[in-house]
């Protein structure tokens, strides 16, 4: 139980950290426009996957749903980044 709770808190720290990184990157880092855009989107979908895996506990789900969730994350991430890079 405590292990579980520690892990949940660790994930929260990671999520907040990633939010901070993408916020700082977009406001102060001197990255190129497209590089910055793609990295912010990639970070967002990393966060999404963290939430799905650790908070929604996707590992306990039956296989088709798990495939659907992973497909959503990678498919939507790919499609959004592709549309952004057009």
């Amino acid at each position: 139980m405590t292990l579980q709770k520690d892990r949940l808190f660790l994930v929260l720290t990671a999520l907040l950290g990633l939010t901070l990184v993408s916020w700082l990157a977009s406001s102060s880092l001197g990255l190129g426009r497209q590089t910055l855009g793609v990295s912010v989107l990639v970070l967002a979908f990393v966060k999404v996957r963290l939430i799905i895996v650790y908070y929604m506990e996707a590992s306990t789900v039956c296989r088709p749903i798990r495939v659907g969730l992973e497909g959503w994350v990678f498919g939507v991430a790919g499609a959004t980044i592709a549309l952004y890079l057009l």
């Binding site: 999520l15 939010t19 912010v40 970070l43 999404v48």
Partner: peptide, 11 residues
């Protein structure tokens, strides 16, 4: 999380 990045942050 996605909406925030897409609408507010992505340049």
């Amino acid at each position: 999380v996605v909406l925030f990045s897409l609408i507010y942050l992505v340049p």
